[in-house]
Design a protein around this nucleic acid. Structure first.
Lengths: 178, 178
DNA sequence: GTGTGCATGTAAGGAGTTACATGATTGC
DNA sequence: GCAATCATGTAACTCCTTACATGCACAC
């Protein structure tokens, strides 16, 4: 079976306690989304493949007419996850940001629009930082109290990077001010 | 015509002096690649669409049996570019990084593998930072001397962010050391 | 004469998204 | 009773990449 990073997101979320596909997606939206986005349409087919490959078990529990499932990692699943975590092979980081692209080309703008663009970018970074500090870090710190430490490290790295970028753009902004 | 960010990359690169599709790709690989990756297979069809829409002109110049083209922005093309630079609408930033995903799930690893993972990440960030400082910033500063200032701002923002992240991971590394 | 870089393009495939479709349960 | 949330899934589509195909020019 071909293992893409999305597969390890599934295994990881189940490892963190998510029991349904829906719960995986919700947890991923509060955590891995920021460095590996995953849509619901990926979740169910991927879970199917992972079960077929024996990396997880799905137990059916009928609720009304609708079938619901309880997922759990198998031993093989846990091993494969750890093996991947250890392996150094990596696709290149990819980053796409229209804001930075605009900044790169901003020489074509008149000075007041340049300033407005930088202000918009800073505001966006500020909001992302605030969201991270207020919503994401506390959740990760709750996990930390339970002994799972790395989600909080990653959340703080993101929060601190946003803060640093905000300062940087603030400085650029003041340089551009008339 | 539907204008995606890749279209503005083309317009921007021509605006910076790239005259052929090949030159656009080369310049993009040294600049916009880091916040809007573009493959060669996108370049030629996109240039075709942009010409059809009247945003650029292509002048054919026959070299041997092979046709070569000289691209230039039309007035409409310049206007559309500036209009987009001014517009606030933006798709969400997207970032995909297997390294950070591994870090997020690193609680499953034994301590020595956790440390090895953080070291690998720091090394990767260090190399990306060095490449940015040594290869990208100097090119952008050459443009700056010609009066085009923002590419250098973006290059420095990237260089400084890498340096900050490297420090951050260094600190985490020393916390994990036995 | 041969490899490297310049240069233009297409075809097939893969990864991921949006939109759609269905139904149960819980809180107001 | 109705909205929001929980929950599972598929189909169509878009975007982008990899691989392929071709040929000129120049340096060694």
């Amino acid at each position: 079976m071909k293992m893409r990073p999305a597969a390890y997101v599934m295994l990881g979320m189940i490892g963190l306690g998510a029991r349904s596909g829906y719960a995986i997606k919700k947890l991923a939206d509060l955590s891995t989304r920021f460095f590996w986005p995953t849509s619901l349409a990926q979740v169910y087919p991927e879970l199917g493949r992972l079960e077929e490959a024996g990396l997880l078990t799905r137990k059916s529990k009928l609720e009304g007419k609708r079938e619901r499932f309880d997922y759990e990692l198998t031993e093989v699943g846990e091993e494969k996850l750890v093996e991947w975590l250890r392996s150094p092979k990596e696709a290149e980081t990819q980053f796409r940001d229209e804001g930075v692209l605009r900044l790169f080309l901003a020489d074509r703008l008149p000075p007041d629009d340049q300033l407005a663009l930088v202000r918009r970018l800073r505001k966006r970074v500020h909001e992302a930082g605030a969201h991270t500090r207020e919503e994401i870090v506390p959740l990760a710190e709750a996990l930390e109290r339970g002994g799972t430490r790395f989600p909080a490290q990653v959340a703080r790295l993101r929060a601190d990077t946003y803060a640093y970028t905000e300062q940087w753009l603030e400085r650029l902004e003041s340089e551009l001010e008339p």
